[in-house]
């Protein structure tokens, strides 16, 4: 056998091995990725039927533990606001005395509509679609609505009283 022919066969086989190994690695990687991805729809929520609209007083935010959210009555509208801080995921409690959401981790503050007022959060708080079924409030936790961008001040009002979180 002549040298060039042997070389080209070797090159062909080497290329074949490399191609095969690449395909195998890609297939293994994709399989691993697919198997580690959370199952579709698992734990993503769904519609929750809550109390009647009249139970949510204006200027308050009521915690709904089963949905990990607040139902906030801004005075003009009802909003379902996720408890999760859009900054780094801490739970943001509603401060009754100031009438605002105040995050304990990094000091982000949001108004009763979940709009950003101060702190490191890049946006306002995430919301869920809210509707009524008869008199009852229904929140669909499977669909998230991205929080309002910084600068939104539709529901802004001066603080009602002292903050719950200390100020520096």
């Amino acid at each position: 056998m002549t040298a060039p022919a042997a070389t080209s066969r070797r090159n062909f086989l080497n290329a074949g091995w490399r191609l095969g190994a690449t395909i195998l690695a890609a297939a293994a990687g994709w399989t691993l990725f697919e198997s580690l991805r959370p199952l579709a729809g698992s734990g993503k929520g769904g519609p929750i039927k809550l109390a009647n609209t009249g139970n949510y007083a204006a200027g308050t935010a009521t915690y709904v533990p089963e949905g990990r959210l607040f139902v906030a009555n801004t005075g003009t509208t009802l909003l379902a606001i996720s408890q999760k801080c859009p900054h780094l995921g801490c739970r943001v409690p509603f401060c009754d005395s100031s009438g605002r959401f105040e995050c304990p981790c990094h000091g982000s503050v949001f108004d009763i509509g979940g709009e950003w007022i101060e702190g490191p959060s890049p946006v306002g708080m995430t919301q869920y679609p809210i509707s009524t079924d008869g008199d009852a409030v229904v929140v669909d936790t499977s669909k998230q609505i991205a929080g309002p961008a910084r600068g939104a001040a539709q529901y802004f009002s001066p603080p009602k009283g002292p903050n719950c979180q200390p100020k520096g």
Partner: peptide, 19 residues
């Protein structure tokens, strides 16, 4: 996607602990 892979669900829970 990365966060989903790391914690295995919408929030930290059983899949996260096991991972």
């Amino acid at each position: 996607t990365l966060q989903d892979l790391l914690i295995g669900g919408p929030q930290i829970g059983q899949p996260t602990l096991l991972r």
